[in-house]
Design a protein around this nucleic acid. Structure first.
Length: 274
DNA sequence: AGCTACTCCTGGTAGC
DNA sequence: TGCTACCAGGAGTAGC
């Protein structure tokens, strides 16, 4: 599932293929992917791509007027194909560029979006700090955790708290920091908060370096290749397999309606609330 | 404020 | 083999 590292990978690989290009024509094959088809087509045709960037898990395609705000959700992909590309079974949107190439938004499960907006702020929800940005310091995290009474995992998944983490990297970061996903945020001490900060930072950077994580057929880079970080995962998707630190079998739980992977020995359950 | 449930979707898979 | 039932999951929303 695309999270921050996967989205960052998409943006980096897409950028040289689309920046500076003019969109001659657009085609929408699944209306809900773009919100409203006529609006999308009208605003996109003839526009030139100025820059490509990422905010949380959103992909921002800045145009000479307006912006495209993309979200891959579970199964979205973005590719740039050579001239002559024909839409395939899960092609939702095509943008025909002035160099003949075709930008494709491909999305099996149709949860992803590629919306036109005058300004990104018009469609972006409230988002917390970027976990790789300057504002996300250990001190900030420690102070922010102290004010929240929620379980740590749902809190980290809340994009208005920190922006960009998803199920995979939250499970991995909590394991690395030896924190149980149900641990109440405000009861996390200074050392654990610092360990969590270090873990989030380190894991995201490593995942970006490896072009993200690919499970089954879900994530592919714009170049069509799987990421390489899935081999580094310690708990996610390893239910029943031995913990690489202590050998205890990794357990799969449900926390906040999310499949959650923990080492029952390394991540001790909080004393209360069970 | 924080929780739970529901919605959107399809491909993959477990069970029969 | 072929069927059905269920699961995964990001995030928006509604209700308590």
């Amino acid at each position: 599932m695309p999270e921050l590292p996967e989205v960052e990978t998409v943006v980096r690989q897409l950028r040289p293929r689309v920046v500076g290009r003019t969109i001659l024509r657009a085609a929408v094959y699944w209306e809900r992917s773009v919100g409203d088809r006529p609006t999308f087509l009208r605003h996109v045709r003839g526009r030139t791509v100025g820059a490509l960037s990422r905010r949380a898990k959103y992909i921002l395609v800045e145009l000479d007027r307006g912006v495209l705000v993309g979200h891959l959700r579970m199964s979205g992909r973005m590719h740039v194909h050579a001239a002559g590309f024909e839409p395939r079974s899960h092609t939702r949107v095509c943008l025909h560029l002035d160099d003949g190439a075709v930008f494709e938004f491909h999305d099996v499960r149709k949860f992803g979006r590629l919306l036109y907006a005058r300004r990104a702020e018009d469609v972006l929800p409230p988002l917390g700090p970027e976990p790789l940005g300057d504002a996300f310091t250990a001190a900030w995290l420690r102070a922010a955790l102290a004010t929240r009474q929620r379980q740590i995992k749902p809190l980290l998944l809340d994009q208005s708290f920190v922006a960009g983490l998803g199920n995979i990297y939250v499970d991995e970061a909590l394991y690395a920091a030896r924190l149980h996903p149900r641990h109440p945020a405000h009861r996390i001490g200074r050392r654990k908060a610092e360990a969590l900060h270090t873990a989030i930072h380190g894991i995201l950077l490593d995942a970006i370096r490896r072009n993200g994580s690919s499970f089954d057929a879900a994530f592919r880079t714009p170049e069509g290749l799987p990421g390489d970080h899935q081999h580094q995962l310690q708990v996610y998707g390893r239910g029943g397999e031995p913990c690489r630190r202590c050998g205890a079998p990794i357990r799969k739980l449900l926390v906040g309606q999310r499949g959650t992977h923990v080492c029952p020995r390394c991540q001790r359950s909080p004393a209360v609330s069970r």
